[in-house]
Design a protein around this nucleic acid. Structure first.
Lengths: 148, 148
DNA sequence: TCTCAATTTAGAATAGTTCTAAATCTTGAC
DNA sequence: GTCAAGATTTAGAACTATTCTAAATTGAGA
């Protein structure tokens, strides 16, 4: 487990990714990751807990938070924050943005982003930009249809 | 107070805006709005409460939330959500984006946005886009300097 | 096998927000 | 001006989301 710092391209499998961040692969982390990939509906920690519990009854809420944090830390999962509500989790690490339905609160992946170049963002002196998060707000197809 | 619905361009002063949404101008709402404009550092509800309390000692937390909601509802204030923490409030209604410092958590207004046209976002069928929120992540000047 | 550090666990604690019911204020009708 | 109806404020309780704590468990390396 040396030469870790010298491995520039992070791997795409869970084990490698965790190791790369100095974290271990545990059954719980695996389970949480699976839950996220199984139904990519941007669940809250609570929803992840319930789904994981169905398969692994002894898992605890604290562990779910730990696991989610570990997955976020090692770059396998993204955190998604909507107004005032609980944080949601997204295992899609492709560059994409999120569409929030103002009506029903559902979240949808939109496979299109605005790159820093496209955006032509000119920051004041001193700021160091790492990434751009784009959130789209409006009505999802269902709610748009209902709204006449 | 009729003909309200027939007034298409919303006014820019607090009273008009509130009225336009069927809300009243109260001393508390005025105070909360002032607090926000006085120091535009994207305070949390709690910070707003403390600052408002300094000038208006009888004001309660519930009222601060009510007022913030009213101000958001009538379009005088924007809600800003950062990862997992408390919601922040921004009285700058100019089109702008927010820069979050990953290090110190500070929030900065960046007077540049990506319009739906510029972005050239193509949504799947049925979605109705209302607005785009752009959040920039990275290091603020202070933290960038410290980070060598 | 032993030791040490990482991880998990249950439950307590905290933070952020919303709810409730009573009191107060405002507005429009008379 | 007076009154009723509805909006708003208030304190505090309740609730939800998240973090902390301390003990138990696990796993890796010596």
């Amino acid at each position: 487990m040396n030469a870790v710092a010298s491995k520039p391209p992070p791997e795409n499998n869970l084990n490698e990714r965790l190791a790369h961040s100095g974290l271990r692969l545990t059954p719980q982390r695996q389970q949480v990751h699976e839950v996220l990939r199984e139904k990519m509906d941007h669940p809250t920690a609570d929803m992840v807990f319930m789904r994981a519990k169905a398969k692994m009854p002894e898992i605890s809420m604290a562990t779910v938070y730990n696991c989610l944090d570990a997955l976020v830390q090692c770059g396998m999962v993204r955190q998604v924050t909507l107004d005032r509500g609980a944080t949601r989790y997204c295992p899609n690490m492709q560059d994409h943005s999120h569409f929030y339905c103002d009506e029903c609160g559902s979240v949808h992946d939109i496979l299109q982003t605005i790159s820093p170049e496209d955006a032509d963002i000119k920051l004041p002196r001193g700021f160091r930009l790492k990434n751009i998060e784009t959130n789209l707000h409006g009505l999802c197809p269902d709610c748009a249809a209902k709204a006449k």
